[in-house]
Write a protein that binds this DNA or RNA. Structure first.
Lengths: 154, 154
DNA sequence: AGTTGACTTAAAGTGCACTTGAGGTTCTAG
DNA sequence: CTAGAACCTCAAGTGCACTTTAAGTCAACT
């Protein structure tokens, strides 16, 4: 529970995070951030909310949905200000996702480069792999990275 | 224009690409792929469409919208089967985007790791940068990566 | 005390990328 | 020749992540 003394308004939070107030209200409705209210009913956010919002932004860039981010953020304590250790746990797991995403893109790049390099855009000659990654994909199911099903030339 | 002899049906294209027929029709309506019709009005796709669809899938994973992908694909010749050189041009520009995206994620990772490592999740001590990347971002405008505005502690 | 800007809610609207449904036609195997 | 799978169109529906609108309230400053 943030004391009203070290609290910031939704406008301030918006300005400092670069996220629209409407989005911040939306995040609150989805349980990603929390606020206390003034007597008049206005939201006041604790300063660490800024860090939380930054985390949300960063996580979105890695391809996580708000639901996934909300789940991750539930690991942070609600009642007390998150400690260094709290954030470390969260950031480590998130770092794993980041690494996975990087590896995925690098694989994609390598495959593309080698295909272009050797000139074999046909899949008779190019090895092709079925990516089974689902973390960052917006689509459903397995997809072929750059080509056809094995054994079929295009 | 694909000869009907080396043409594949939408069902085949769907199975081989892993993309639903409804999505393929949608792609066609958006001008990402093209087909000829049988006398009965059914679609027939040229085999290189398979490569095109694979490209679309890959580009989506990098964070491009269908509109952006459509624009990129317009660089491919409509009338003749794309040559190795045609694809190379396309893939090189796409490769640039990929590299940029990887760099972005790596920066994010480095920053996160060093912040966790030194324990300074407050931004008094942590250097913070305003990411100005927009290629892969779904949000609008600049965002702070992991923190507050410069000079403001949280 | 009044004005102005920032805030409030609830509901509807937006854009993207599709999917689903209804109702009908075509293709292919037996 | 016929059954059934696969295809067709068009319109409406879905899920996500918000934004916009309307009507009103609160907070800060003069």
């Amino acid at each position: 529970m943030p004391a009203l003394s070290d609290a910031i308004t939704i406008g301030e939070l918006s300005q400092r995070s670069g996220v629209a107030t409407s989005a911040l209200r939306f995040y609150e409705s989805r349980g990603l951030i929390a606020s206390v209210r003034t007597n008049g009913g206005q939201r006041r956010f604790a300063r660490p909310t800024l860090r939380r919002v930054a985390f949300i932004q960063a996580a979105q860039r890695v391809g996580l949905s708000l639901d996934e981010i909300a789940t991750a953020l539930r690991k942070l304590p609600e009642r007390r200000t998150p400690t260094k250790a709290d954030w470390a746990v969260l950031s480590r797991s998130w770092n794993g996702l980041l690494r996975a995403r990087i590896v995925e893109l690098e694989t994609l790049q390598t495959r593309l480069t080698s295909c272009i390099g050797c000139g074999c855009l046909s899949l008779k000659t190019c090895g092709l792999l079925n990516t089974e990654d689902r973390a960052a994909g917006r689509g459903s199911g397995a997809r072929y990275l750059l080509g056809d099903a094995p054994g079929v030339a295009d």
